[in-house]
Design a protein around this nucleic acid. Structure first.
Length: 760
DNA sequence: TGCACCCGGTTTTTT
DNA sequence: ACCGGGTGCA
């Protein structure tokens, strides 16, 4: 135990060894948050305060859960498999599998990812003849997910007008459809579990008394339902150990409620609030920049990071004339960093929105520098993988109409829209699934549909004794997917991905302890197995928390859950020593020796849409705080005078965040310019754009008339070289904004100033 | 059945 | 500027 606790600083030690009571840990960026969480778990177990089965640890991402497990198994000589460490959704899935009957779900219920949910909604609207212009599927999806995240079923959603009443009706219809098909969406996993535990007292008591210690990571990211879920799980006596950082709350747009931190403190009567403010990541100037910036936010729980690392280098700031030039500068700087011995993977290029990566990628490609872009399509989201998964889903649960429709005619087998319509009519008439409706279809359509059903059933029969990887391999062949992509020009990559699905299945059965030989379709033993079940004092049969996954699910069901809940990596150039490109959001939780934050312009960062949202700019500032605190040793920030966006050139002002940084920690690589100042009046970027638009015609004229154009490099006797940023007026009144670099921005009368052309 | 064209949208993202 | 989805034609 001495080992476990030594090397912790006083605050960390205090947090790790808190008594079994609700606790809130405000963990700043780079303060050893994960270390505290895992050490707390290890300490609780090692001191005999709780058995591994008494621990419930919740994270948001699979990556975080995996990280926790890895660190724990390094600390403790125990098997971590029985521990309940996972994402909200993963844990809910596990609970619902064990208690599917009480939750009123089929044993083989399947999980819809966002894509699946949207297509299920589109299908619903079509079947109800709803105008999808008036009720856009996407909006309905937001509406439904939003309601579920408030814990509301359709009958409890308040609607004050006809339009919203229709949404509520459609929400109810969607629920019916899902129930009929035996599928649940992500929000449903949470809500269904919440309802199960609220309704079923013996079950609730069982888990409440089992999980004496509940630990929550990234608590600031919880939504309202997740918070209620935690409250229910904790009951009266559960010791909830919540770790979070209100300054890093950047997911309000997807329902996260940072107010849950204050609510937790109040409602759980938190006596133990500990701030982790010692930062082990960044040098002083970087940390100062972060602290001073975030102090501009009003609603904070209050926290200031400190470091022993010394000031280090100042934050370098660069003003580019264009997005292209900005990208080239980033690459030049990266090159010299690499030349000085930096590893490419320790350099990150961050941006606010994905669209900004293109210019940077282009420049990197041209320069021949390897790079990796985060956030592309994930493995299980690829179309060919979704197709293969749909076949497997039908073998597991033939009533999943989404899966049916996805592959009934893929690869094509002569089942067109006409046949499908006929089938859908029959299914609606009898209130059954498409699969079950096939026997009611006669004629040519009936026989081709019948052949499809035979294909699925044949595959089931053929693979009933086979392991999961063997089953996947056979399905790839009998479905005709492999043959289909073999005939396709660009099909080689897709076939490779399909082969990888077999590897993924192999990896899965090994990691989840199913055993390589376990038949994929073998029914779970749970709920009949005397060994696994326990009986509570109320006589209710309860599957124990230690019940292994392979006793509550077949390998196939488990694998399908896995495919929905863990979309997999985007494998692009993984493992290579490459520059790291990503949005600021994706950078959360990561750290790099050197970080570039690019595109720091008004309208982009802070994003223009954030102005409209309540507290939007504060969230942007937190986002900037996250970006800054990713850097260990060196931090660059850049902005550009012009940028291509949506096919149009925009002239943005530099970000207001520059005004919120401590000057003494900054080093301006290009001189600070009086950007967009007219006399004493500071004009917004949008005024500039308006002027620009209004003067477009005049500019065209001036271009021919006086021979100057925007973007052109000119030479001036006194100011030296400069770049024309804007031209206004025409003829003899024409004036130009010219950026003379270290002499600043000047507004010159083109008729008076003596400018010379400079070849560029 | 598949390709060509048009239209609309375009901040951030995990499960 | 670019992508994805939907429609219409060969």
């Amino acid at each position: 135990m001495q080992n476990l606790l030594h090397n912790l600083n006083p605050e960390q030690l205090a947090a790790v060894t808190l008594p079994a009571q609700p606790a809130l840990i405000l963990a700043g960026a780079g303060s050893g948050k994960t270390r505290v969480l895992t050490t707390r778990i290890a300490w609780l177990i090692q001191t005999g305060q709780v058995s591994p089965a008494g621990i419930l640890a919740v994270t948001f991402t699979n990556k975080a859960a995996k990280e926790m497990l890895t660190r724990l198994s390094a600390m403790l000589p125990i098997n971590t498999r029985g521990m309940w460490i996972g994402t909200f959704h993963g844990l809910c899935n596990r609970l619902l599998r064990a208690h599917y009957r009480d939750a009123a779900l089929p044993q083989t219920f399947q999980i819809l990812d966002t894509q699946d949910q949207l297509s299920a909604i589109k299908r619903l609207l079509k079947s109800l003849n709803v105008d999808d212009e008036k009720y856009p599927p996407r909006n309905l999806m937001y509406f439904i997910n939003n309601a579920k995240e408030q814990g509301l079923r359709a009958q409890y959603v308040e609607a004050n007008d006809d339009y919203n009443r229709r949404f509520v009706e459609l929400y109810a219809a969607y629920e019916n459809q899902c129930q009929r098909e035996g599928v649940v969406d992500f929000a449903e996993l949470l809500l269904r579990t919440y309802e199960l535990l609220s309704r079923n007292e013996p079950l609730r008591r069982h888990y409440q008394s089992r999980f004496r210690h509940i630990l929550v990571d990234e608590f600031q990211d919880t939504n309202d339902l997740q918070y209620k879920w935690l409250k229910l799980m904790a009951g009266e006596h559960g010791a909830v150990f919540a770790v979070g950082d209100d300054d890093q709350s950047i997911y309000a747009f997807r329902g996260a409620n940072v107010g849950n931190m204050a609510a937790f403190e109040r409602e759980f009567h938190v006596q133990n609030l500990i701030k982790l403010e010692q930062n082990y990541r960044s040098h002083g100037h970087i940390l100062d920049a972060a602290n001073v910036l975030i102090a501009n936010n009003s609603k904070r729980l209050g926290k200031n990071l400190r470091t022993d690392a010394g000031h280090g280098e100042p934050v370098r700031i660069y003003e580019a004339s264009s997005d292209i030039q900005e990208a080239n500068w980033v690459i030049e700087e990266s090159k010299s960093l690499i030349a000085e011995g930096a590893s490419r993977s320790e350099i990150a290029i961050l941006y606010r929105s994905n669209a900004q990566s293109r210019v940077i990628e282009h420049a990197l490609f041209t320069a021949g520098i390897p790079y990796r872009v985060y956030g592309g399509q994930r493995f299980f989201e690829r179309a060919e993988i979704k197709h293969a998964i749909a076949y497997l889903q039908l073998m597991d649960n033939p009533h999943n109409d989404s899966a049916f429709l996805r592959v009934v005619n893929f690869p094509t087998r002569g089942i067109g829209a006409r046949s499908i319509e006929q089938l859908q009519d029959a299914a609606r008439q009898y209130g059954i699934s498409l699969y079950a409706a096939v026997p009611y279809i006669s004629g040519k359509a009936g026989s081709s549909l019948g052949a499809f059903v035979k294909l699925i059933e044949g595959a089931r029969f053929e693979t009933q004794h086979l392991s999961l990887p063997e089953m996947v391999q056979i399905v790839l062949e009998t479905s005709g997917l492999i043959a289909h992509y073999q005939n396709e020009k660009e099909g080689a990559d897709r076939i490779e991905n399909l082969e990888q699905l077999v590897s993924a299945a192999t990896l899965f059965v090994n990691e989840e302890g199913f055993g390589m030989d376990a038949p994929a379709l073998a029914g779970p033993k749970a709920q009949t197995s005397a060994g696994a079940a326990i009986v509570s004092e109320d006589g209710v049969e309860i599957i124990d928390a230690d019940t292994p996954l392979n006793e509550v699910m077949s390998p196939l069901s488990a694998f399908l859950s896995h495919a929905s809940l863990e979309a997999g990596d985007n494998q692009a150039q993984a493992g290579q020593d490459a520059l790291q490109l990503m949005t600021v959001h994706s950078a959360k939780g990561l750290e790099f020796d050197a970080v570039f934050i690019t595109g720091l312009e008004e309208g982009l960062f802070p994003h223009e849409n954030s102005e409209k949202a309540d507290g939007g700019v504060e969230e942007e500032r937190r986002l900037m705080y996250v970006a800054i605190t990713r850097a260990k040793k060196r931090l660059y920030m850049s902005f550009s005078q012009t940028r291509m966006l949506h096919g149009q050139t925009r002239y943005n002002m530099k970000s207001r965040f520059f005004d919120e940084l401590p000057e003494e920690s900054l080093k301006w690589l290009s001189p600070k310019v009086q950007h967009h100042w007219f006399g004493n009046q500071r004009r917004s970027a949008w005024d500039e754009v308006a002027d620009f638009e209004a003067n477009k015609v005049a500019q065209k004229f001036t271009k021919q008339d006086i021979g100057w154009r925007i973007g052109e490099t000119v030479f001036h006797q006194k100011f030296g070289e400069g770049v024309i940023v804007n031209i206004e007026g025409g003829g003899t009144n024409a004036r130009a904004n010219i950026n003379f670099g270290r002499h600043g921005m000047k507004l010159l009368d083109l008729g008076i100033a003596k400018l010379e052309k400079v070849a560029s």
